[in-house]
């Protein structure tokens, strides 16, 4: 799905009185101008071929089907993207694909699980409340149930007795899901590395996507880690259902 206004051959914007401009029967195949009034935009399909970018190798994408820009990174390599007015927020053109839109949505509404283990939980709550408001970056309200959560922020020392319940929490979360290890104790054991009852780093029992060191990390540190996680979400890292893993996972990351 690629949207471009003012494609060649199309009328440059529909007049308010021009009822037939976008309502023709060929709306599915013909380039149609983007309607000027927003009320009609809800009812009409707008399908415009991509005229911005073509692949160097025409059969590289989908066996020779018309190329479409599927990723912001590809689009950023074009001449158009290098212009100052072509920022992501000020785009006239949104070259995209449903997966990419879904990734954007996932990355900007991360729902962490409210599971504080020890000291770091206080700083995690501090990151979520007034002064450093995590909601501003789309890291959303803390969910009390693992079945409603995307991200497991392991905040605090993990003891051997708690490792079983924590692993179960991780398994109860629906995919796709991500894990953030917050604090030195969860990264490597930290100051309790010498203890007889702690797990030296939670990556001994479960996968971790982002490590946030510090004892405890400042709330800004946690927010920075979550912003790194947002990049990873867009890169399709993390734990996905089996059918969604495959060609979408980039090489070398």
């Amino acid at each position: 799905m690629a949207l471009t206004p003012d494609a060649p051959g199309a009328p440059g914007g529909a007049a308010p009185g021009d009822v037939t401009a976008g309502a023709s029967g060929q709306a599915g195949t013909m380039p149609v101008a983007m309607p000027a009034d927003s009320s009609r935009a809800l009812t009409e399909a707008i399908v415009v071929p991509n005229s911005l970018w073509t692949s160097a190798n025409p059969i590289a994408y989908n066996g020779g089907r018309p190329a479409e820009i599927t990723h912001l990174r590809e689009w950023a390599q074009t001449e158009d993207a290098r212009r100052d007015n072509a920022r992501w927020g000020a785009l006239e053109v949104i070259p995209t694909k449903a997966d990419y839109v879904l990734d954007l949505i996932r990355a900007n509404s991360l729902w962490p699980l409210l599971s504080g283990l020890a000291c770091c939980a206080i700083e995690m709550m501090s990151a979520a409340t007034s002064k450093n408001d995590m909601d501003r970056w789309g890291m959303f309200p803390f969910r009390a149930s693992p079945r409603q959560a995307d991200v497991l922020i392991v905040a605090g020392t993990l003891t051997t007795k708690m490792s079983g319940p924590l692993l179960r929490l991780w398994e109860q979360m629906p995919e796709p899901k991500w894990c953030v290890a917050m604090g030195d104790c969860t990264v490597s054991g930290g100051r309790y590395k010498r203890s007889y009852s702690t797990v030296e780093g939670i990556d001994r029992i479960m996968p971790v996507d982002v490590y946030v060191p510090g004892c405890p990390p400042r709330p800004e540190g946690l927010i920075f880690g979550m912003m790194k996680l947002q990049q990873l979400v867009k890169d399709r890292r993390g734990h996905w259902p089996e059918r969604m893993v495959g060609p979408n996972v980039p090489d070398g990351v």
Partner: peptide, 14 residues
């Protein structure tokens, strides 16, 4: 209890 037992008293002895 005991889900957060970190053995601090023993660490302090060492």
């Amino acid at each position: 209890l005991g889900y957060l037992h970190r053995g601090v008293e023993k660490i302090c002895e060492n």
